[in-house]
Computed example of a mutant assay.
Amino acid sequence: MKIQKEHVKKFHEQLVNFAQENFSKLEELGIDTNEEINSTYLGFLVRQITLNSDLELLLENKKHNYHTSQLILLRCLIDDFLHIVYIANQGNSEELIVNYNDDAYSKNFQKLKDLATLNEKKLGGNYPYYPTHKMLDEVMEKVKENPLRNHYLADIENFKFKTFKNTGNIIRDLAEEDYAHQLKRAYFIWRKLSDFVHYSNMAFNEEQTMYPGNDYTYNEFAEIIFYSYRTVMTCLEYFRNKFGFEIVDADNLAEYYANAGH
Rank of each mutant, 00 (worst) to 15 (best):
L115W: 02
G30C: 09
D195V: 08
G43F: 07
E60H: 14
F23Q: 12
T163M: 10
E145M: 07
F226E: 03
Y256I: 12
L136S: 15
D79F: 09
N205K: 10
Y179A: 06
Y211I: 10
G213L: 09
E27L: 12
P131N: 12
P212C: 04
Y152T: 03
K2D: 06
L123E: 00
I156T: 15
A250Y: 06
A175E: 15
T50E: 11
N61F: 13
D155A: 05
T163E: 13
A260C: 08
H7C: 04
N158H: 03
D54A: 11
F245C: 08
R185D: 10
S194P: 00
D80P: 11
K144E: 12
F81G: 00
V248W: 08
T50V: 11
K184Y: 09
D114Y: 05
F81E: 00
D102M: 13
T167F: 00
K192V: 03
K122D: 11
L148I: 13
A250H: 07
R191W: 04
D102F: 06
N146L: 02
F23K: 12
I72D: 01
D251T: 07
N259Y: 13
E35Y: 11
M140H: 02
L58R: 04
S93G: 02
T132K: 01
D155L: 00
E21I: 09
D80F: 10
N17F: 10
E237H: 08
S200A: 11
V143P: 01
A250K: 15
I189Y: 06
K144T: 06
R230W: 05
K165T: 07
F81M: 06
N119W: 00
Y187S: 03
Y66G: 07
H83V: 14
G125V: 08
L77I: 10
E21K: 12
I97N: 05
D103K: 14
N146M: 02
A154M: 07
A222W: 03
I189M: 12
I170S: 01
F18D: 01
G244Q: 09
K160Y: 10
I189C: 00
R191Q: 15
G125C: 06
D195G: 04
F81S: 04
E237V: 04
V8S: 07
F109S: 04
S106H: 14
S106Q: 15
E141T: 14
M135T: 13
L51H: 06
H151R: 11
I3V: 09
M202I: 15
Y127L: 08
P131G: 10
G244A: 06
L73P: 03
Y127C: 09
N17Y: 08
K160G: 02
S194V: 03
I31W: 03
Y238P: 03
Q182C: 07
D173N: 15
G91I: 02
S24N: 12
E95C: 12
Y129W: 10
E60P: 01
N219T: 01
F109I: 04
E237T: 07
Q110Y: 14
T217P: 02
H198F: 01
V197T: 05
G125N: 10
R47P: 02
H181D: 14
I189R: 04
K142N: 15
G43P: 06
D251A: 12
N108C: 09
N22S: 02
K121T: 10
K162Y: 03
N252A: 04
I171F: 01
V46T: 12
L82S: 14
T167L: 05
Y66L: 15
F159S: 00
